[in-house]
Each structure stands twice: as C-alpha cells, then as structure tokens.
C-alpha cells in the first residue's frame, strides 16, 4: 500500500479552446487535508471535479489510491463530496438523504439506515432524521451534507467552498468542526476555497492555483512566509512587493539597502506589512493612517515607493502627514522574482 491517496500527472482540462486546467501534477498523502486556493476562474473547482469524476481530463492521468481512474465516471469512484449549495435532495428527508449512497451501492436498506443514523449521531443531528432539508437551518443542512459525504467511508472527501453559505460569524466554528471530523475519521480531504484565511486555518498543505497552473504548493506557513511568486505573496495575506536589483548580496530599491542572498540582477521582494517597523522622524512620510480596531494600518511613502504597514494598537499612533523611518529586518524579505 502506498501512502499516496490522490495523484495528478500532467492533467489538462479543456473546454472547447479554453484551458481550465493547464498541465498540473501533484500528489496528496493519505489522511492529509489539502486546499486548492486561488481566485475565481483559476481552475481550482475544475481540479476538484476532476478528482470527483464529474469531469474527465482531456489529457493526463488522475490516480486515486494508486489506481488510474482517468476514464471512470463519478459513480465508479469512491469519493464523497460536500457541495457549495449542499445539494441535499429536497424531496427526501434527512435519513433518506444520508442513506442514499449506501442504498444505491446495493446495500440492504435497513443496514444503510442504521449506518446513516450512526453518522448522523456523530455529527450531532440524531433528532432531525425525519425532517426535510427545507426544515433545517443552514448550519444543520451543512452537517447533513457532510454526513452524507462521509457515510460511505470514501477514499477522498471533497469540499467545494463549503462555507460560502454559512454565516460569517459561524464560519470559524464550522471549519473547526470539519477539520475535527476529518482528523477523527482519518479521511483524505481536498478543500476548495478562494478565502485565504480559511485555507490557512484548515489545511495541512495548500495548492495555490493561478490561471490553470499551480503557483505554489506548501504548508500554510511556507506559503505565508516564503511565497514563491509575487502572485502568491499578494494573494495570501497582504504583501508589499518591491522591485529593485541585487548586487553583491545586497538588495537595492530607492534608498533601501538590505542584505539578500542570491544571484545578482533585477529582483522583486515581498515583505509583509506587519513585519515593517515605524519610527518617528526620517525621510519617509505617512500618507494615511487607518484605525482597524485590532491594528492600525499606515500607507507610507518611502524612497522605494508606497508601502503598507500594519502596527499593533498598543504602539503609539502616528498621524497622517508625519515624517517617519521604516525598519525592515533582512530575514523578513522573500525574493519572489
């Protein structure tokens, strides 16, 4: 038995002449929760659907559990999926919804229902099995959808933006529930979202996608601290992207000079706003200061261009128009180009 649950080998998906997925390869280990993250139209949902079998690749191979399933329809794969709209069957009650899979796969009805009841209990919905989906709250519907997806112990559990219909306040709780469930059942899960905070919070690893290609794969911390491209730096969190040149181990941009290893030549570096310190007096100037409750954000005009700076509120507030000096530790720089 290999430890790889899912593998993509040079997968391409074309719709007519449009390329939705442009030759991606990656593998996901058993028990891992991996997130596809990217802006809309980057191919993340298509990639998820390729795993599910709801789309078949135009080129390349999709392997699940080491088996080539590239030409198998969804019904021949053992995957569970939680849809953005939950896709609960409105004409069936909760129990019928959850036992649908086991019954369809040829199971005995009583056994299927017993299994469904058990799962419903696990997700905390035991009392609601006779209700119709329309009689449930949004959060309950979501849990039914999850229960329905895991009742058959799928090889892979797929989530397509499962939180987009959940109240903003509830999201933190629900995503913790999802993560907990995934760990408890030891499921391999693939999660799609365009919300970078959500991705950072739930994932073991994140696959950042851009225009049908993979921009970077890594743990949440990797991606935040060591973005590989300007796109990744900008998409995950806020980033100041500074263009300059590297010469003899020093990065130059305007009046900025910071130690940076790597080959000489034109370079772009990324620095997170909270990694920049501010000191009164100096050649830089605060253009705007915005109080955001948990922090204060400044836009500062420096010799190397405008920069976004985020400071904790316990530091002294600086008014717009004030002259300041920015402080950057060289270790906080990431070369992205």
């Amino acid at each position: 038995m290999s430890d790889t649950a899912i593998e993509f080998v040079n997968v391409v998906k074309r719709y007519g002449s449009a390329l939705a997925v442009d030759g991606i390869s990656f593998s996901i280990a058993k028990g891992e929760l991996v997130t596809f993250l990217g802006p809309s139209g980057c191919g993340k949902t298509t990639s998820l659907r390729l795993i599910a079998g709801l789309e078949l690749p135009s080129e390349g191979q999709v392997l699940i559990g080491g088996r080539d399933v590239s030409r198998d329809p969804a019904s021949d794969r053992n995957v569970g999926m939680v849809f953005q709209s939950y896709a609960l069957f409105p004409h069936m009650n909760v129990l019928d919804n959850v036992s649908y899979g086991p019954v369809i796969r040829g199971g005995d009805k009583a056994a299927a229902q017993a299994k469904a009841r058990e799962i419903l209990e696990q997700v905390g919905l035991s009392g609601l099995q006779d209700r119709l989906p329309s009689e449930l709250s949004g959060g309950q519907q979501q849990r039914v959808a999850v229960a329905r997806a895991i009742v058959q112990q799928p090889e892979v559990l797929l989530f397509d933006e499962p939180l987009s219909n959940v109240d903003a306040k509830l999201r933190r709780k629900v995503r913790a529930e999802i993560r907990d469930l995934q760990r408890r059942f030891g499921l391999t899960a693939v999660y799609v979202t365009h919300d970078q905070e959500e991705a950072l919070a739930v994932s073991d690893r994140i696959i950042v996608m851009q225009a049908g290609k993979i921009a970077q794969i890594g743990t949440p911390q990797d991606l935040y601290d060591r973005p590989a491209t300007p796109f990744v730096a900008d998409f995950i969190g806020d980033a100041n992207l500074i263009a300059g040149t590297v010469q003899n181990g020093t990065f130059h941009a305007g009046d900025l000079g910071l130690a940076l290893a790597g080959p000489d030549g034109a370079a772009t570096v990324s620095i997170r706003p909270e990694r920049i310190g501010l000191r009164r007096d100096g050649s830089a100037k605060v253009i705007s200061a915005t109080y955001l409750g948990s922090r204060t954000e400044y836009v500062v005009q420096t010799g190397a261009g405008e920069m976004l700076v985020s400071r904790p509120i316990w530091e002294d507030a600086i008014d717009a128009g004030a002259a300041v000096t920015i402080e950057i530790r060289p270790t906080d720089l990431t070369r992205v180009k």
Partner: peptide, 10 residues
C-alpha cells in the same frame, strides 16, 4: 449539483 451529489455517492 444535486445530480452530481448523487453521482459521487455511486
């Protein structure tokens, strides 16, 4: 997606 859900369930 209701039909897709049905498909993913086999």
């Amino acid at each position: 997606s209701m039909e897709e859900a049905s498909q993913t369930m086999g």
